[in-house]
């Protein structure tokens, strides 16, 4: 139970960084932390205590194993996260070139 709770705390830390930080890079790090929390959660609920890894072996009869599907989902989700992070860092660099700052309170040409 405590691991699930810590996972939630990690998610909250990420959300806090997204909502409260003023530096673009810190916001991006916040998003990444959130992502990790969700991925960790996905792996956690597929995990069963003291069970073996879900690898097929013709010599053994596997009776107890962890759920392999969430692990596959997490792999997909990590790849998606990589694409998003690469794009957002690229955009942040371009913003720095245009505005000369990473401070979101100074990046406000859009109003209304």
């Amino acid at each position: 139970m405590i691991t699930y709770f810590l996972c939630l705390v990690l998610f909250a830390v990420g959300l806090y960084a997204v909502l409260r930080k003023r530096n673009l890079i810190k916001i991006i790090i916040g998003i990444v932390i959130c992502e990790y929390a969700v991925n960790l959660f996905l792996v956690l609920f597929g995990y069963r205590m003291n069970n073996r890894s879900p690898i097929y072996d013709p010599d053994q009869v596997i009776t107890k194993m962890v759920d392999p599907l969430p692990q596959a989902l997490v792999l997909t989700s990590i790849v998606i996260g990589l694409a998003t992070t690469a794009l957002v860092v690229g955009i942040a660099i371009r913003i720095y070139e245009k505005y000369g700052t990473f401070d979101i309170t100074k990046i406000r040409k859009l109003r209304g």
Binding site: C34, S77, V88, I95
Partner: peptide, 23 residues
Amino acid sequence: AEELEASFKYLIMSSVASLFILL
């Protein structure tokens, strides 16, 4: 400048939305 700013804002909010959906 404006387009990058809008895209950044959109990207952050939309990724948070995606994370909620994944959760």
